[in-house]
Design a protein around this nucleic acid. Sequence first.
RNA 1: GGGGGCGUAGUUCAGUUGGUCAGAACGCCUGCCUGUCACGCAGGAGGCCGCGAGUUCGAGUCUCGUCGCUCCCGCCA
Length: 596
Amino acid sequence: MTDILGNMRRTHTCGELRASDATKEVILMGWVQRRRDHGGVIFIDLRDKEGLTQIVFNPEFDVDTHEKAQVLRSEFVIGVKGQVMARPDDMINGKMDTGAVEVFVKELKIFSHAQTPVFQIEDRVEASESIRLQHRHLDLRRPQLQKNIIARHTASRAVRDYLNDRGFLDIETPFLTKSTPEGARDYLVPSRVNQGSFYALPQSPQLFKQMLMISGFERYYQIVRCFRDEDLRADRQPEFTQIDMELSFVGEEDIMEITEGLIKAVFQKVRGIDIETPFERMTYAESMDRFGLDRPDLRFDLELCDVSDLVKDTGFKVFASVVKKGGMVKAINAKGCATFTRKEIDELTDFAAIYQAKGLAWIKVKEGGEWQSPIAKFFTDDEKAALAQKLDMETGDILFFVADSPKVTNEALGQLRNELARRLKLIDPDTYRFVWITHFPLVEYDEQEKRYQALHHPFTAPLEEDLDKLESDPANVRSRAYDMVLNGTEIGGGSIRIHSTELQEQVLKLLGIGEEEAQEKFGFLLNALASGTPPHGGLAFGFDRLVMLLCQEDSIRDVIAFPKTQKATCLLTEAPSAATTAQLQELAIKISKIEA
RNA sequence: GGGGGCGUAGUUCAGUUGGUCAGAACGCCUGCCUGUCACGCAGGAGGCCGCGAGUUCGAGUCUCGUCGCUCCCGCCA
């Protein structure tokens, strides 16, 4: 049997040779990064996933090999045997890890020729997303993406090591399963042997992991693919990966402690960064009040201030009427930013409008505390003094106000807070600020459907001291749900679950899910609950998002080997694609064109 | 479902009020070159200006439609 490798086997990677390796005979294998042909001597940068090494073809060293190297071009795959040479001091390349050496080649094997790549395999070459995804195999050769995919593996391994060491069991749950109640749109899979019936791909293994607790496994985890048929974003793919966990006989603090340790281990292993634990805790109510969002970025201040009380009777009707209708007026003081131009203020107004804010009122504080503002004339001196005190208004400040429903005011001003921080460069990209957000509302009233909806999911336990409000005042029942937030991004969330059948039935009733519907959709869980259920709870991390933050990338596509486009297609495989008539017949499915 | 950005050479882009506007850089090919490392020098090839209509004497440029990539709102933990 002949074999192109022959007896050639790699002795070193392209990233590891140093001056101390000089005179060694080595065998390297990899891709031709770049060829510099000087006529007499040819330099090649050889690349593998570990790095680059300069190899030299010199006719004085080996005339036949030099001749053979003439044909080498970008992305050819070769193996070379040669001698490591220390470079003279004036030829050391300080920009390369291996820059102190080079390998003089005496034997060359060309494993593969390669077409000229459509884009160069370098981090600094920015090809369009479309080109990158069509040629993902080339894109993935770029050092940055290799680093990301390796970091993803390192993170995954750190998670498994940590959880395995703590008695967690990795248990697989079905992909072909049943539609989960509430939540996102399902991906459906038609059944051939049960024509007309469909499986749903799991949005999360929620029900199964609770079943596993009921079965007595006590500690479960899975790094598991989940599916949601919703529109995509930079941080949302239709299939994505969760670190899914569930524990029995625990409360919130136990889960927080163990997952803080998990995140600490991941940051240690992937980035060598020591994260301080325990993390800060903040209630949902406090987060909304101070930051307007349930995922506050704590790397900077710029806190929101509720001035509804001070302006409820003011002559500025926009403010007064909003407060009278149950809305709120909040403000941000951008200290020292009275230098903002009209154009900048207009841009910020447009920014707030994205989040439904109908306007963005502003006040610049001039020398002597004088207000420059389109709304200054509506306020009495007393009102001005009260606002100035409450908002700590000093010369050189600019204040931004949003007046609307609590939902819009908080969202718009909370987002504006983040935008101001970006513009003012208040964010240190190397800082990691974690916070737990706790006591989320159990339910939220859905104006469109005229009913309460679970904020987290229907199996989340209400806070014990709020149980009496379950019927009388459901909107103010707090839950035992918690989110882990990192730098303004939710990276994980979970809750203590309901483990009593009675309470579960009560909550389902509140959500308007009738007994029949409940039985049909997840009767199996309700039955199981009645069979002896331990107190339990859990949490799921968005693994892609976590790795994205670890890699300091802006899109999860850059930490997923084969991501989908915004239209949920795969440019590499051209999925999804039409099914054959025969396939459709087997499934008893007819395609009807849906009119727009 | 809605709003914004982009689409011109293999790649990234420039292209003014519609009239030398078919351009640059990198890449590629050929030749020269024994110390480069984003090598250098000389020469060369390479274009359905996403696609389709329309306006016009004339469209890369204006209008409409359509397709694709992307950011965001809605939606979605």
